[in-house]
Design a protein around this nucleic acid. Sequence first.
RNA 1: GGGCGAGUAGCUCAAUUGGAUAGAGCACCGGCCUUCUAAGCCGGGGGUUACAGGUUCGAUCCCUGUCUCGCCUACCA
Length: 691
Amino acid sequence: MYLRQQKKLEERLRAVLRELYQIEVGNIVIDQPPEIRFGEYASPVAFELARKLRKAPRKIAEEIVAALGAIEGFAGFEVAGAGYINSRLDRGTAVQAIAGGSDIETFAEHLHSLVEHTSINPNKAAHVGHLRNAILGDTFVRLLRAAGQKVDVQNYIDNTGVQVADIVVGLMHLEAMSMTDVQKLMSRLAESGERIDYYCWDLYARVSQWYEADEMEKQARKQVRLDTLHEIERGGNEAAAIGELISTAVLRRHLETMLRLDIEYDFLPRESEILHLKFWDLAFEQLKAKGVLYFEAEGKNKGCWVMRRMSWLLEKINTTTTESGENISELESADYYDEASEVSIFSRPKSADEDAKVIIRSNGTVTYVGKDIAYHLWKFGLLGRDFGYRRFFTYPDHDCWISAESGEPDHPQFGGAQAIYNVIDSRQADPQANVIGALIGMGYTDQAAHYTHFSYEMVALTPRCAQELGYEVPEEDRGRPYIEVSGRKGFGVKADDLIDQLIAATQKEVDERHPELDQVTRREIAKEIAVGALRYFMLKYTRNSVIAFDFKDALSFEGETGPYIQYAVVRTRSIFRKGETTAERALAEVADIDPSPYLAGGEADEIWQVWLRAAKTSLLLDQCIGTAEPAYLARHAFQLAQDFSNFYRKHHILTEPDPARKKFLMATAAVTQRELIRSLGWLGIRAPEMM
RNA sequence: GGGCGAGUAGCUCAAUUGGAUAGAGCACCGGCCUUCUAAGCCGGGGGUUACAGGUUCGAUCCCUGUCUCGCCUACCA
């Protein structure tokens, strides 16, 4: 309702400006007045026109208001302050419309999108940083799906990288294990209920220390690491087999951890297949043919195949654009690859570009960015080769597939998406930008424009939290706001430990509050609250804010938290239970009455505030997708819960004597419940029956 | 050296992307359970938005400079 009326108002303003002043205003700014008593929409458009028209803004605003006439659903327009144009909705009509439903259809897009998130190296347990990634990604998937998009969820698995190699080194060299020993180890762990990912967490830290421990041996040990890495990449040997076994087991653990948070995946592309199916060879041919990649014959990169950096391109086209991906759409108009002459803007420079990015080293091996370019060509359906697929993990209503050299004949289609989102932390902005740069250089500007590096800042630990975990915090770090986690040092909070702690804390509360419920139900409620607390905690910060993790904050269930919002829903449920009706019925019954009398006067503003906020959920969905920022919706849900709590205290619903007013108050609780559950659902948070 | 991000209340963060009196949560102080669940509500104190200029009707937001912090910038992967 809110969004639809805003668009109507915008159009009318546009028409009025055309009539009165023969002016086209590109973007008509409409926001909300500082106080609800001023109306629902405010536009400062008169200020903007003041200079152009050489008139006082207030005068312009008066002329516009006079010319607006009547707009369906609006009660009136007025000039406020120095020249704001405030618009009031007809509250009675609006309430009926809000009770009727949402207006997602005003912006729904039927794109085929691909979201990649989680992507944890399968060599250790997931930690809080990975949780932020997965929760952000999963939430964004839910938002896109809510807006009508078809979304594939991918979790990229670097199963042949140096981190997996480190684990293999640990098993083969520190523990002197063979393949059969490793198999025995795994069944021993399984029997004793120990987690393979936790075992690897410690082993990874040990191996990282081992490399550095002995100055004399350092060189040799690093060589062991490199040799192991190459064996794993090549495949068909013991190191590769052990790597495969361990990484697959750890991967399975990651999927189980994420499932605790209701996070599911559709496809797991692995680096091993990107290597063995030779994706790179095809990408190399394309890059070479289009001149994006060229052989460097001199300078420090002599003997390598190199590519211009994105930063160079941005400077070249003289834009102020900096953040990777986000403003690529501005590049669309220009041509960076000329089809006719087959010349790319990236073509070989006259003198060596020392700053160029090396894609193929002088020893003939491909760098990470090179493989990533190939993979992203596949994502957009531009590579000309596909993975094999086989089933890997089963969810209640679908399967998760994994890449394979030769897979099952019948499988769903992946790749070939119209838009992609890569949930990757901000430290990888540069490599991401270079992949985008390669696409642009190859002439795939449209794809580059739909490539979003969904970047976010890391989760670090407060010094206090680090000390609680038993880590020695150096003197100079104690005053800092946060300390970066480190897998190599085994320094961090493991995801499953945190979830366990959260459940233990919520379980205690639920047991105390509801001794009458059976244990299974109490357990279920405790889990829902714990997950709600965790997911909300990770979502309430905007993406580019570093989260300084602290158990005190994360284990809080009061104030701006998930449980606060869940609690508001539980209160509405309680009202309908005691009132022996349902939210659906309460919303339907608002049609029987005229709510207008209850929406007028100062006292009514706080009730109207609930309806207005509830009406904005769709607007928030639109904004969250446009800005790739789920935090706005998290905040919206909190504010709606807050508005409701305020209303709830002041207006006692079930004892309301006026039957028509009672229906209206019931509908107020109902619309809150509907919008809170909807918003929470998109945030991946369930709304418990009781708490 | 270059690039990016950040600096807002004691602490952690917002601020609808240039709009009206910069808002929340936590912490602190005071009040509210015989009434739909107190994981709640109400009230209070708390601010030179790092600093200095500039742009304009209007700046936390844009521009220039300075300071502080973090990250990125390898033929490692």
